[in-house]
C-alpha cells in the first residue's frame, strides 16, 4: 500500500510539471514559443518527425537516429577492440605497463571533445573524423576499467593457481580475466555512454545528418520544438543502449554481485 502511495506522488509530480509547462506556454502565453514550446507542440512535432517528416533538417527522426548510431557504434567498436586488450595488457605485464602507461596517462586527462578540431582538420567532416572522436571517448573508459579489473585479481587466487602448476597464460585466462569480467563490462557500458555523448558534440560541430546536427540546425532555424524532440531522443537512445548492455552483462556475468 505504502509503495503505491509513492508511485502516485511520483506520477503527480511529473504531471504537475507538465501542466504548469502547458499553462505558461499555450494557455497564458507567459513564455514566448520561440523560447519554450508547449508540451503539446513538442508531442505533435515528435509524431511528425517520427512518422517521416523531414522538415527542418532534411531527415526523419529514424534516419537521424540510424545515422548517429552508425557512427557511434563504429567508433565504439574500434575503441573497445583496442582499449580492452590494452588495459588487460598493461595490468598483466609489468614491463608493458612501465612503457605504455605513461603514454596512456598523457591522453587520459584530455576530454574526447578536445580532439574534434584535430580530427576534423586531419580527416575532414566525414564519417572517419567522427569515428576518430568517438574512438577516443570509448577507448579511455574501456582501457581504464579493464586495467582496474585485472588489478583486482586477488593475490591469493594467483598463488593457488601457481601452486597447482598453472602457466602464466592459464593464470590470465582462468583467474584474472574472470575476476575482471564484471569491471570490463562496466567499462564497456561507460564507454558506450561516453561515445554517445561525444557523438552529439561531434555532430553539432560537423555533420549533415544525425541527432546532433538536427538540434544544432534547428536552433539556427528557430525551431525549439525540434531541439527538444532531439534532446529527448538523444537521452532515450542513450538510455536504451545502456539497458541493452546491462542485460548482456546480466546474462554473461552470472556471479550475482554488482560492480559499479
Amino acid at each position: 500500500m505504502k509503495k503505491h502511495k509513492y508511485t502516485v506522488i511520483s506520477v503527480c509530480s511529473f504531471l504537475i510539471v507538465l501542466i504548469i509547462w502547458q499553462l505558461v506556454t499555450d494557455v497564458f502565453h507567459l513564455v514566448s514559443p520561440i523560447m519554450l514550446p508547449s508540451p503539446t507542440t513538442i508531442l505533435k512535432t515528435f509524431w511528425y518527425k517520427l512518422t517521416g517528416g523531414t522538415v527542418p533538417d532534411g531527415s526523419s527522426l529514424i534516419q537521424n537516429i540510424l545515422s548517429s548510431l552508425k557512427i557511434a557504434l563504429g567508433g565504439y567498436v574500434v575503441g573497445v577492440v583496442i582499449g580492452v586488450p590494452l588495459g588487460i595488457g598493461m595490468a598483466w605485464s609489468r614491463r608493458f605497463e612501465l612503457f605504455a602507461k605513461p603514454l596512456f596517462d598523457i591522453i587520459r586527462p584530455v576530454p574526447a571533445l578536445a580532439w574534434i578540431p584535430l580530427m576534423i582538420l586531419w580527416l575532414g567532416i566525414g564519417y572517419a573524423s567522427k569515428v576518430g572522436i568517438i574512438f577516443f571517448a570509448a577507448f579511455i573508459s574501456a582501457t581504464v576499467n579493464s586495467y582496474t579489473g585485472i588489478r583486482q585479481t586477488s593475490q591469493v587466487h594467483l598463488w593457488v593457481g601457481k601452486t597447482f602448476g598453472a602457466t602464466n597464460r592459464q593464470l590470465l585466462f582462468k583467474v584474472a580475466l574472470p575476476t575482471a569480467l564484471p569491471m570490463i563490462f562496466t567499462g564497456l557500458r561507460l564507454a558506450l555512454g561516453s561515445a554517445w555523448v561525444a557523438l552529439v558534440a561531434a555532430e553539432m560541430l560537423a555533420a549533415t545528418s544525425g541527432l546532433g546536427y538536427m538540434i544544432q540546425i534547428s536552433r539556427l532555424l528557430g525551431r525549439p520544438d525540434v531541439i527538444i524532440v532531439g534532446m529527448i531522443t538523444i537521452g532515450f537512445v542513450g538510455l536504451l543502449l545502456n539497458t541493452v548492455l546491462e542485460q548482456l552483462q546480466k546474462r554473461f556475468v552470472r556471479r550475482g554481485k554488482k560492480h559499479d
Binding site: 523560447m35 555523448v197 552529439v200 529527448i232 537521452g235 542513450g238 538510455l239 545502456n242
Partner: peptide, 16 residues
C-alpha cells in the same frame, strides 16, 4: 528524465 540527456545537447536551447 533529465539525466540521460548529455549536457552538450542543451547547448542549442541554452543559446536560445
Amino acid at each position: 528524465f533529465i539525466r540521460p540527456i548529455p549536457p552538450l545537447a542543451w547547448i542549442p536551447l541554452s543559446i536560445l
